[in-house]
């Protein structure tokens, strides 16, 4: 999460930098509070705060396309994954060393997969960056993905009640 928070701080100038530092500090405090108090809901909040500072920097700077986005996506995913893992370890028994190593490898694999997907999306976004219809197509795909994620999540919640 440090990387996610550091990028806008490093790139921003003046007011953006100060705001990014504050937002990063709040995100860090929220994450630490979530881990200390065992509140899992604070983990995505802290990631969202850090990502929010990145989004603000992107919008205010108006840079064309950030090539570091896939790396930041990996950082965000790993931060969330490690945060949840830490909470799981707190609430239940400590796993065997082999099991912990296996999950660490799995998390690393997730990071690599996220990097591949991010790079692919970045390339796609670069290709269709000719504005107009292409961007609309990307937006529509994003909206469809949002809907799919929400439907999947709601189905999971529905199953858990049975």
């Amino acid at each position: 999460m440090g990387a996610l928070a550091a990028v806008p701080v490093a790139r921003g100038d003046g007011a953006v930098e100060a705001a990014s530092v504050r937002l990063a500090a709040v995100a860090l405090v929220v994450l630490v509070a979530g881990l200390v108090l065992g509140w899992a809901r604070l983990v995505p909040v802290s990631i969202a705060l850090a990502a929010g500072s990145y989004a603000a920097e992107l919008v205010l700077d108006g840079a064309p396309l950030d090539p570091a986005a896939p790396l930041l996506a990996v950082a965000a995913l790993l931060a969330a994954e490690l945060g949840y893992w830490s909470l799981e370890e707190r609430e239940s028994a400590r796993g065997e060393p082999a099991e912990e190593l296996r999950h660490a490898v799995f998390a690393a694999g997730l990071g690599v997969a996220a990097l591949v997907v991010g790079v692919a999306l970045l390339v796609l976004a670069d290709l269709v960056r000719t504005e107009g219809l292409a961007l609309d197509v990307a937006g529509a795909s994003a909206a469809a993905a949002v809907l799919a994620a929400i439907v999947l999540a709601s189905r999971e919640r529905g199953r858990s009640r049975h």
Binding site: R41, A55, A69, A76, A149
Partner: peptide, 28 residues
């Protein structure tokens, strides 16, 4: 819950702010 929220917020923000980087952030 957390991943669904992050994905949804990221993708909606990407759409609203017209920044594909946020969609890349939410995609994983």
């Amino acid at each position: 819950e957390g991943y669904a929220a992050l994905a949804a917020v990221g993708l909606v923000a990407a759409l609203a702010l017209r920044r594909p980087e946020l969609a890349i952030l939410a995609a994983p």
